[in-house]
Design a binder for these strands. Sequence first.
DNA 1: TCCGTGACGCGAT
DNA 2: CATCGCGCCACGG
Length: 117
Amino acid sequence: MVPSDGMFAVIRATIRKIPRGKVATYGDVAYAAGFPGAARQVVWALHGSRGLPWQRVLGAGGKILLPGVKGAEQRLLLQGEGVAFIGLRVNMKLHRYAWPGLRKNKPKPQKKLKMSS
DNA sequence: TCCGTGACGCGAT
DNA sequence: CATCGCGCCACGG
């Protein structure tokens, strides 16, 4: 699957890989699909989606961004898959999908340290 | 063709 | 925490 197949095709394929009981953020999907920063395109891909695990895609921090009844439905679907919530957010610590072959943590910027004397 | 719109993200402040 | 600015790009008017 390469970008030349079309951005949405790649994004959809990426979303399909999220297993039951796991979730991913829009940013994660975009990054994993090879389009870092293109979170909005993920939204579009979901719009034209059919047969995708759309409920497993959340906002940054595991927050459901889909408003209204759809949002409530999303939460119920996820809970039905065993996904645990902490308040309004999904417990990402437990359910964030670890994309195979992707850097989990960003490189540490080297905190400014003060030198004595 | 230009322009606003999206279930947005992220680093900096 | 909250806010700002910028990046992202297909689509419809």
